[in-house]
């Protein structure tokens, strides 16, 4: 288990946290919904091959994610049902916050990063567990790929 405050958030996630902090409480859910709508459609081969991705079991909704590494740059692809907008929003935030980083930078993201986004008041601990599970699985994939 990591020290939650030891490492700073990468710039993308720090920007998300700052945006939520600057948004009045009553508008934060709308902002979260905007993130949900920004989740990118899956590219091939994942669009037709869900089995090439990893299911995030900690999430109560079917959430699948994969971390691709090309030329030392990580790309995150993820999908969740339309009827699970909160899950889509977390996936979208991780996609925006982690894509473009190097594997080392992704691995340096603190495990508690989802809890530092200022969303814990809006959503339940169970919902946050899905988000931390998503990050952990992405990091595990990146670790496995960089060791191999």
């Amino acid at each position: 288990m990591s020290e939650s405050t030891a490492a700073p958030l990468p710039p993308g996630l720090a920007a998300v946290a700052a945006e939520f902090a600057d948004t009045p409480r009553e508008l934060r859910l709308e902002l979260l919904l905007e993130y949900a709508d920004r989740l990118k459609p899956l590219p091939e081969p994942y669009a037709s091959r869900e089995d090439l991705m990893e299911r995030v079991e900690e999430c109560q909704s079917p959430l699948f994610a994969v971390a691709e590494i090309q030329d030392n740059v990580v790309s995150i692809h993820a999908t969740a049902p339309q009827e699970s907008p909160t899950t889509r929003a977390f996936a979208s935030i991780m996609q925006l916050g982690l894509s473009g980083l190097t594997p080392a930078e992704v691995l340096a993201v603190p495990a508690s990063a989802p809890l530092q986004l200022g969303l814990t008041e809006l959503v339940s601990p169970l919902r946050m567990r899905g988000a931390t599970g998503l990050l952990a699985r992405i990091q595990r994939q990146v670790r496995a790929a960089t060791i191999a």
């Binding site: 709308e30 919904l33 949900a36 109560q60 009827e83 907008p85 909160t86 008041e121 809006l122 919902r127």
Partner: peptide, 21 residues
Amino acid sequence: EDTLLYETGHIPGSVKVDWHT
């Protein structure tokens, strides 16, 4: 369960009660 679902669209006139918040 999904706290954002109401915001994506709901039955006209309905109000939201979130189990957690």
